[in-house]
């Protein structure tokens, strides 16, 4: 899936997968923080969303 998303022109870092156990709360928070940082850096996704074409 990550492969495909990158293939269609979305930056790779926008989607992440990880194994996290229910007991690893700290790790979960850490990963989410990391991810939000990455996505913030990328800014809004202009490639896919809101591209309206002419009729």
């Amino acid at each position: 899936m990550k492969n495909l998303i990158n293939y269609i022109g979305i930056e790779e870092d926008r989607v992440n997968f990880a194994w996290i156990s229910a007991s690893e709360g700290g790790r979960f928070a850490e990963l989410v923080n990391e991810l939000t940082e990455k996505v913030k850096k990328l800014g809004p996704n202009k490639n896919i969303v809101n591209k309206h074409c002419e009729v």
Partner: peptide
């Protein structure tokens, strides 16, 4: 795949329009 992300995005935007 050898194209850049922007090139690929532009290609699909054109096709899908």
């Amino acid at each position: 795949e050898a194209k850049t992300v922007a090139e690929r995005a532009a290609y699909f935007a054109e096709q899908m329009s």
